[in-house]
Amino acid sequence: MQSNLEKKHQDEKLEALKEGKTQKTKDTLDKLNLILSNYFEQGNVDFSITNIGMISYKNSGPSYETLRATKNVHYRKLISYWAELIKSQSVDNKVVLPATDNELLNTIPDIAARAYFARILAERKKFKTELNILKSQSEIVIDKRNQYTQTTDFIPNLKLTNNELSALTYAVSDECIKLNGWLKTELGQIKGSEYQNEIFPRGFIQALNKVIKSNE
């Protein structure tokens, strides 16, 4: 439960997010904030975009796609404010474990909506699995030299399984980069499309392509 001071701070953050926004966006922020407040007061702690997208949709708030849209950073900031409040209280309060995917889906009465979010959860699980496969490739050597000054090629002597090769191929595909909201540069660097922050350094794309080619 929020203290009076915490409620005041949350209200101030909400008003700051409303500055310069249209009335429709302000109303949507109010609606989302009410949903988040009720969710918080119930003792819930999972403020992930996927979970809040389902909760919001169920309560006639902004959809998962709306929350994830690049231009709608204000909605994600509002969610992060509530997530930060949970963290600040977790030291003194008993934390309730996040609900499982099936438990979340069972809270959605509409069959079509439940199937829709089940697909989103399945895709999230797939991406996590593929990311874990990538992380397990500890022997991959990323050549960070400028590609225009390289005189020799170095291809790691790796023998990958079909699943591992498929995971690496998908990791550098346009589909994967687009779904994760990334951008790739001519130098093989991957950046976040929203803040232009570096996710993988220069040479990352070229390095993975060499590994893939050596295993084809």
Rank of each mutant, 00 (worst) to 15 (best):
Y57V: 02
N33H: 13
K24M: 08
I52Q: 00
D30R: 04
S37D: 09
L34F: 06
G53M: 01
A16L: 13
K31C: 09
L29F: 09
F40V: 06
Q42W: 11
D27V: 00
Y57Q: 07
P62I: 00
S48A: 13
S48H: 10
V45N: 11
T50E: 12
M54A: 10
G43D: 04
E15P: 05
N51V: 11
L32S: 06
F40M: 09
K21T: 07
N51Q: 09
K26S: 09
D27C: 00
L32W: 02
T28L: 13
E65G: 08
F40P: 00
N51C: 10
E41N: 14
K31H: 13
E19D: 11
T66A: 14
Q23W: 08
T22N: 08
A16W: 09
M54W: 02
N51R: 15
E15Y: 08
I55Q: 07
S63E: 12
I55F: 05
V45K: 04
L17I: 03
N33T: 15
N33S: 15
K58Q: 15
M54T: 09
S63C: 09
T25W: 12
S37F: 12
E15L: 14
T50P: 02
E15D: 12
L14N: 02
T66G: 13
K24E: 14
E65I: 10
K26Y: 02
I35T: 00
P62H: 08
G61Q: 04
Y64S: 04
Q23K: 12
